[in-house]
Simulated scan of single mutants.
Amino acid sequence: MKDLTSAVEHRQEHRFARSRDPRSAAKILVYHPEPEDYVVGIRRALPDAEVVFGSDPDFLRQHIGDTEIILAPRFPVEALQDAQRLKWIQSTNSGVDFLVPVRERLKNTLVTNARGVHGEVMADYVLGTVTMLHWDFPDLLRQQAAQQWKPKFVDPLSGKTIGIVGLGAIGAEIARRAKSAGMTVLGMRRGSARLGEPVDQYYTREEFDEFLSRSDFVVLVVPATTETYKLVGAKELSAMKRSGYLINISRGSVVDELALIRAIGDGQIAGAALDVFEVEPLPPTNPLWTMPNVIVTSHIAGNPTEYPRRILEIFFENARRYLAGEDLINVVNLARGY
């Protein structure tokens, strides 16, 4: 493998400076609770690189000083003050909100994420929970456990409207799945519409209340930023239909959880499917665990099988580009937070 530090200047706003002997091998730090699959793959594909791995903050502090590349889902950002040669952070997640508060320290560091890995499986999750909420599968399962035989009549999903907040790669895939089910699709995003998106009508942030009032299912697919903090609170929940459902696959900080619990308990909305929470793991005392019209999952909506392999495909493509001085894929704009 060519030395990673021999990359020419990046053509975007970031540049890779040669801060040490160009003949030395790059040091790649894998900071992950389950690093084995990543480490084996990297060592096989990049045999000249020095690869260290661990998941302990002391390990991170010990090695970050001369590390050139970090691959991690997240890490204690305090360690960045000791980073002298860091050029590139490859996140194994899509969200990199933990880096936003320290973005000034990363002006000369490229950050890339796992965009593209999660779209299909998250769309599966959303359409699955839409169906479960629509049919009230939690109650059907309770009936099964009690050996109760009850008739039920349900409107077809093709007569329902889904509102998707955040039409990036994941949101667009959800829109395609919903449209294939015959649903009316509403969308809200920053920026203009994209050609070919299966969205029936777009809304701006200023039109959020109308968007919510029209949606039978509101799906949140936005990054955690200052702009999206508690995007959905008591006011927004009161704008939803009483028969409406909230589905959150973004971040727990996007929803005012206490307001949501109250809205569901008071019958202000019909229920929710939640994969993310303000505190994770969700504490045993949280009422969401036992609310009859709430589906709780443990932040798994974006977990396809063979996850390390999918991440390494992105990492190796970016390593090739890094060496060649080409633009990397999945570059994150930390000023925006995604």
Score class of each variant (00 low, 15 high):
V331P: 01
P283C: 05
L140T: 01
I264K: 04
L46E: 15
M291E: 04
L60R: 13
R142S: 04
L274W: 00
E313K: 15
P33V: 09
D209V: 00
D124W: 00
N248G: 07
V100C: 10
W149F: 11
V96R: 14
R190P: 02
G265M: 08
G265D: 05
D82E: 13
L29K: 07
F316Y: 10
I42Q: 02
Q62L: 15
G267E: 11
E207Q: 15
F211W: 11
M188G: 04
V199E: 06
Y202A: 06
A175E: 05
R321Y: 09
T184L: 10
W149Y: 09
M240G: 03
G54D: 07
T129E: 07
S250K: 07
I162Q: 08
H10S: 11
K230M: 04
A224V: 01
I89Q: 06
V96F: 10
D56R: 07
E34C: 09
V255R: 01
R43W: 01
G65H: 14
D275M: 07
E207M: 10
M291A: 08
R194W: 05
T225M: 05
L220H: 04
I162N: 05
A169M: 05
E68G: 09
V221Q: 01
D58E: 14
S215Y: 03
H134E: 07
S253G: 06
R205D: 08
T5H: 14
T285M: 00
G119A: 15
L212V: 01
F277G: 02
R177W: 01
L140I: 09
D136F: 02
A239N: 11
W88Y: 12
L288P: 05
R15I: 08
A175L: 06
G271V: 09
E104I: 02
V40M: 05
E326K: 13
R309S: 13
P138S: 04
R177H: 08
A270Q: 09
T92V: 09
Q12I: 08
V117S: 08
Y203M: 07
R309N: 11
V77R: 10
G182S: 06
I69Y: 09
R61N: 13
V219R: 09
R20Q: 14
N113P: 00
E257P: 01
D58Y: 00
L237R: 12
E68D: 15
A72L: 06
G95Q: 14
A259C: 03
S238G: 14
S94A: 15
H14M: 05
Q147D: 13
T305G: 13
R142P: 00
